[in-house]
C-alpha cells in the first residue's frame, strides 16, 4: 500500500472580486495531479509561488475538500475517512500563525497533546524530548508572543511530531529560519526519514529538495511538469550549457528577444540591487554569446560566464524560466 496516493486531484477556488460590482473569478489551483508516495519515502513538491503546493498539502491533511479526483493516506480517503487519517498524520504550514500566543510553548504543546489523545504521562516525556530536539528547552515557559519567528516555526515542528505520526506534511518547513536553524531542521527531517517516517515536503528551494528528497515532483500552474529522482532531473539539462550575463538594467522586450533566439531553451532573470543576472540555457555554449550581446546594449553588460547546468537550471527549464518569484539565496 502507498503512504500517499493522489489521483487526478483538482481544486478550483472561487474568489469574489470588487465590493460594488462583485463578480466571481475562478482560480484553478490544481489541474488534475496524480502521484504516489511509498512508505518511508521523503518526497518533495517543488514549485514557484502559486503553483499549488499548499493547496495539495491542505487537501492531504483533510483541511480542504477537492473539487475533483481522490486522495488517500495509508489507504484512507482524505475526505470520506478523515477521522482515520488525522491521528496518523502531522503537519506544519510555513509561518508563525497557528499557535496560542498568549500561552507558553509548553501549554501549547500540552494542549495539542490532549487534542491528539495522548496519555498525559507519555506526553510529558515526549514534550521534553521534542523541546530538546527543536532547541527550545529552557524557553518553554515563556509566552509564544515573545518568541521570534524562527522559534515559533520550531515550536510548530514540535507540535507536528507530538503524537509520533507515520506520515508528515511539511509545507515550507525552513521558511523564516536562519541558515543554521534551517540546516538543523534539515537534519531533523533526515533523522525522521531514518526512523521510517513518510515525509511530504514542499519547498521553493531546489538545493533543499536536492539535499533531502528521494523523489521530487515539480509543480507549476497546478500541473506536475516532472517527477523523478534529483539525479534524473539533473539529466534533463545535461545536454545544455548555461550562459550567465551580468547586466545593468534590461528591458523586458529585450529578454523576449533573447528568448526568441533559435537555439535558446530558457531564459531567466535574477534581480539584485544594482544589477541583474540573465541566465540563458542553450545547447550551444560560448558560440551563442556574440548573438546575445548583439541584442543587448553592450555598455550595460558586465561579466559573462559559461557554466555546467545544475539541478536549479533543470528546475528553471521546467517551470518556464519565470524564476523571479522562486529565488535561491
Amino acid at each position: 500500500m502507498n503512504a500517499i496516493e493522489i489521483r487526478n486531484l483538482r481544486r478550483v477556488y472561487r474568489a469574489t472580486i470588487g465590493t460594488l460590482r462583485r463578480h466571481i473569478r475562478e482560480v484553478v489551483a490544481l489541474d488534475g495531479i496524480s502521484l504516489e508516495v511509498r512508505p518511508g519515502e521523503l518526497f518533495g513538491l517543488l514549485g514557484p509561488n502559486g503553483a499549488g503546493k499548499t493547496t495539495t498539502v491542505k487537501i492531504l491533511t483533510t483541511l480542504l475538500i477537492p473539487t475533483g479526483g481522490q486522495a488517500s493516506i495509508l489507504g484512507f480517503d482524505v475526505v470520506g475517512q478523515a477521522d482515520r487519517v488525522r491521528p496518523r498524520i502531522g503537519f506544519i504550514f510555513g509561518g508563525e500563525r497557528g499557535l496560542y500566543w498568549r500561552l507558553s510553548a509548553c501549554d501549547n504543546l500540552r494542549y495539542f497533546a490532549d487534542l491528539y489523545h495522548m496519555d498525559p504521562d507519555r506526553s510529558r516525556r515526549r514534550i521534553d524530548e521534542l523541546l530538546e530536539l527543536v532547541g527550545l528547552l529552557g524557553r518553554e515557559d515563556e509566552k509564544v508572543e515573545g518568541y521570534s519567528r524562527g522559534m515559533r516555526q520550531r515550536l510548530h515542528v514540535a507540535r507536528a511530531l507530538l503524537h509520533d505520526p507515520e506520515v508528515l506534511f511539511l509545507d515550507e518547513p525552513t521558511m523564516g529560519l536562519d541558515p543554521v536553524g534551517a540546516r538543523e531542521l534539515r537534519q531533523v527531517i533526515r533523522d525522521l526519514k531514518g526512523q521510517g517516517k513518510t515525509i511530504f515536503l514542499t519547498t521553493h528551494y531546489m538545493f533543499e529538495a536536492d539535499a533531502l528528497c528521494d523523489r521530487i515532483a515539480v509543480i507549476n500552474h497546478g500541473r506536475i511538469v516532472a517527477l523523478d529522482t534529483p539525479e534524473r532531473l539533473k539529466g534533463y539539462v545535461r545536454d545544455l550549457r548555461v550562459i550567465e550575463l551580468e547586466v545593468f538594467g534590461i528591458a523586458p522586450p529585450v529578454i523576449d528577444q533573447v528568448r526568441a533566439l533559435p537555439t535558446v531553451d530558457a531564459v531567466s532573470v535574477e534581480d539584485f540591487e544594482q544589477k541583474q543576472i540573465l541566465l540563458v540555457q542553450s545547447p550551444q555554449g560560448s558560440e551563442l554569446i556574440p548573438e546575445i550581446l548583439r541584442l543587448l546594449d553592450t555598455a550595460r553588460v558586465g561579466k559573462v560566464v559559461v557554466r555546467e547546468p545544475t539541478l536549479e537550471d533543470a528546475y528553471v527549464r521546467l517551470v518556464g524560466g519565470d524564476r523571479g518569484l522562486a529565488q535561491v539565496d
Binding site: 491542505k58 491533511t61 483533510t62 483541511l63 477521522d83 488525522r86 491521528p87 498524520i89 503537519f91 504550514f93 509561518g95 500563525r97 497557528g98 499557535l99 496560542y100 500566543w101 495539542f112 490532549d114 487534542l115 491528539y116 489523545h117 507540535r159
Partner: peptide
C-alpha cells in the same frame, strides 16, 4: 483569526 482553527480541525478531536 489566530490561524489555529486549521490546527484544531486537523486533530482527531
Amino acid at each position: 483569526w489566530y490561524g489555529t482553527l486549521e490546527m484544531l480541525v486537523g486533530t482527531p478531536t
